[in-house]
């Protein structure tokens, strides 16, 4: 991360992609710049703009959750500053 290139009051986030999202981004990672106070709902809107031209990705995003390494995040909470973030489509282990 190059802090000099990030606007004041914002942070850069990297979000790992799993499952069906891998077909939309073979590198399985998204990098975004968000306001410090952004909520998970804001993050979702931001990613929707990234996938704006792909109805399948948008549909999957709508059904997906955001998580850290330890828990699934609530929609209205502030995006944790130092956590590793992941975008989790609907799950189907077993």
């Amino acid at each position: 991360m190059n802090d000099a290139s990030i606007a004041p009051g914002t942070r850069e986030f990297q979000i790992r992609l799993f499952g069906g999202f891998r077909q939309f981004r073979p590198e399985s990672m998204l990098a975004l710049e968000l306001d410090d106070a952004s909520t998970v709902a804001d993050l979702r809107k931001h990613i929707a703009r990234v996938f704006d031209d792909d109805a399948n990705a948008l549909s999957l995003l709508k059904a997906s959750a955001f998580a850290t390494d330890t828990r699934v995040l609530d929609e209205d909470e502030t995006v944790p500053a130092d956590a590793d973030l992941a975008l989790l489509p609907p799950v189907c282990g077993g």
């Binding site: 499952g19 069906g20 077909q23 709902a41 059904a63 997906s64 955001f66 799950v91 189907c92």
Partner: peptide, 11 residues
């Protein structure tokens, strides 16, 4: 094909 599953979110 990625298999459809159970959503973890409740938004």
């Amino acid at each position: 094909e990625w298999v459809q599953g159970h959503a973890l979110c409740s938004h």
